[in-house]
Amino acid sequence: MQELLNTFIKSAFVDNMVLAYFLGMCSYLAVSKTVKTAFGLGLAVIFVLFITAPVNWLLHEFLLKEGSLAFLGESFATVDLTFLKFIAFIAVIASMVQLVEMIIERFSPSLYNSLGIFLPLITVNCAILGTSLFMVQREYTLAQSTAFGAGSGFGFFLAIIAIAAIREKIRYSAVPAPLRGLGIAFIITGLMGIAFMSFMGIKLS
């Protein structure tokens, strides 16, 4: 229990996907102009990550990992399908995103319209693929992967709604002309990264 909580908090605050690894910057910067759309995208990312992390874990553990096909027979015991990791993970992610897209279109057409192309683009959001790959690399268990997925999603959600609120606030600020738009968004992201470093090294015991 403590370990799961630790994984969750670590992935949400310390190793934040956006602010510590700078993954998923594309949708993070593009959809953070208003809080409302950022909120929707953040929730979608939480959902996708929460589902894909354990599904990908199962996929990796029972189909892709070296020797995991041994149950099919002797000759499969040495088969190593890890080279299929990327394409398999992406396929899972894409199908989850498709699901989210259908749900959002059904229940909130206005959000669906304002997210536009960035909703299907969650598929190629590095934060999501990154979560699955980190999970394999760090050799998490199934429960840990779920906590890690949820934590990463929550971290992305926090980061994107925070920057969206800031960008709404500074909309009428006298930002120097060359920095307007994305320039200042990058600077804000950097400053937010510093602020999130407050949890670096936190330990729950």
């Binding site: 602020a195 470093m197 407050s198 090294g201």
Partner: peptide, 19 residues
Amino acid sequence: LNPAFPEGWMLAILFMNVF
């Protein structure tokens, strides 16, 4: 909880500035 930093206010305030 954070053994890396003995004092927390500077970072806590920056963190909440962001939010």
